[in-house]
């Protein structure tokens, strides 16, 4: 199981456009991808409703996890999206 911990830097948090881009990218992975607030319950990173409901604000940390071939690449890309301001 690979994972990345990143701080969300977008002013709008993981909502609106960043959330859509994040979910669209995760949805392309052929394996499960989850996202959780640090210390919280993980939810599917492919579900826009679940990701929105996490209510991640600017400056908060998230943990993104996946397992499978190419998981590292997907996680790197997702971490990049989440960390973009």
């Amino acid at each position: 199981m690979a994972e990345r911990k990143v701080s969300v830097e977008s002013e709008v948090g993981l909502h609106a456009r960043p959330a859509a881009t994040f979910v669209q990218t995760a949805a392309k992975a052929p394996f499960d991808v989850t996202v959780a607030k640090a210390g919280g319950q993980p939810v599917s990173a492919k579900s826009i409703l679940s990701v929105l409901a996490l209510d991640v604000r600017q400056g908060e940390s998230i943990v993104i996890s996946a397992e499978g071939e190419g998981a590292d690449e997907v996680l790197d890309r997702l971490a990049e999206i989440a960390a973009a301001s």
Binding site: A20, V23, A27, V43, S44, S47, I48, L49, S50
Partner: peptide, 13 residues
């Protein structure tokens, strides 16, 4: 509208 479409296709839902 694209964001709304994503919600309609939400796998969790």
């Amino acid at each position: 509208l694209g964001a709304q479409a994503m919600m309609a296709r939400d796998p969790g839902l």
